[in-house]
Design a protein around this nucleic acid. Structure first.
Lengths: 228, 228
DNA sequence: TGTACATCAGTGAACGCGCGTTCACTGATGTAC
DNA sequence: TGTACATCAGTGAACGCGCGTTCACTGATGTAC
């Protein structure tokens, strides 16, 4: 049954790692297709082509399997934000736009992930909820840092609160993702992300790039007072 | 056991209606406190103080109970949006701001509702998913109408797409609601809604209220071309 | 290169548990005369 | 106002089902000599 590819030295351990990857991918696909409530040991095992009891050779219990799944997916998201932060000094607004695009792409490819986040498997699990909150904060913090850099470069209006702006950034894809999910994929999520991004940009961008002292920033400051 | 309040003519039917109200409220509280996965007939019955089998005197099955719950909560949300649309002609931006505030308040008071929307109970149920999508469209459509009215009155920039702007409006509370939920209520959701609203307003508002021909709209139009 | 042993992924039967739901029955409440 | 009957909410025992998990066992693969 086993297919030999490379050297045979670490075949054994590698096989276990391969299986875990397979299991986690199957689990995410089940969540995407049938919802988090259908994520059972039996369903995952069946999809991978194993007996349910076989999964216990790779994880001590169901919880550990889910933890591994969340860890792996979380790494992908973290990589996106770190890349954006690294790109920010050169062109903060472009880095932010690219982050939005990459993140939307990631969610489209890992459709099960957001469903999992909203499921009892996460929300009713204090430790995981805390981890998720930390990751969300890291994402938000990264976006806020980019906004600060943009402000420093005079590309973002000085009256834009980086923290509020970062949370508003999440608002660019979360509702669209919700729509996309409810509509069963029949929703142009990338197209919407582009339009929402234009609106967001209009909201945060300084009137004239790289020139800081003009009349418009004053107008914006006046506006802020009216609202708060 | 029964408490007589008014006339005794329709006591019988009223009692059934009262029970259904009680059951639905208990169900929503369970979802809020323990997640949608904990919404069992036994749990609801226990909370109301009945034997599980008693619920079948009021609903043919669990599905019908959930449908009733969603119907009742949906009415509250619809009332909010209809009120905002009615208030729009007088002051569109104020109507939109009030809608945001009222909706956030509603979600805070019916914390179980959003959890239910993201649960398998809705997302894995094609008919309910369709109903939900219709309701969401109605909400979005209402906001878009208000934005159009704002544009007509010269309060909203003419280059703001009402449909995209309406979806962005959802982005003002959905991420905040997610945060608030993950943080277990330890998140200033109303405060955030206020700040996000200021940012949103800055993004859509025409530079000078009620004056349409100035230089800024042109600048905005140029901006749009750069982005799309 | 060949052999003996250890390791490890996979199996199938079995378990206890909570779930939604059914059903015959009870007793309180409402209605008709 | 009193009595006989109908209606209806509530009960407790029982069901079949899918779930996560355990366990003794198997057979393939890797390792040591």
């Amino acid at each position: 049954m086993r297919i030999h590819i490379g050297g045979a030295m670490k075949r054994l351990k590698l096989s276990g790692e391969e299986r875990r990857g397979q299991i986690v991918r199957a689990a995410l696909a089940i969540v995407a297709e049938q919802g988090a409530g259908s994520l059972s040991i039996a369903a995952v095992a069946h999809r991978v082509g194993l007996a349910p009891s076989a999964l216990y050779r790779h994880y001590p219990d169901k919880d550990a399997m889910i933890a591994d799944l969340l860890r792996r997916v979380g790494e992908g998201i973290r990589a996106n934000i770190e890349r954006a932060v690294a790109e920010a000094p050169e062109d903060p607004l472009a880095a932010l736009g690219a982050l939005l695009q990459r993140h939307v792409q990631f969610v489209v490819e890992n459709r099960g992930f957001p469903l999992l986040l909203f499921s009892d498997l996460v929300t009713q699990h204090p430790e995981r909820r805390r981890t998720l909150l930390e990751n969300l904060d890291r994402f938000r913090g990264g976006v806020a840092d980019i906004l600060r850099e943009g402000r420093r470069q005079g590309l973002v209006r000085p009256d834009v609160n980086p923290e509020a702006g970062a949370l508003a950034f999440l608002g660019l894809f979360i509702p669209a993702g919700l729509y996309w999910h409810l509509a069963g994929g029949r929703f142009d999520i990338t197209g919407h992300a582009r339009r929402a991004w234009a609106l967001y940009l209009a909201g945060i961008r300084a009137p004239e790039p790289s020139r800081t002292s003009r009349r418009a920033p004053l107008r914006a400051r006046r506006r802020k007072e009216t609202v708060s």
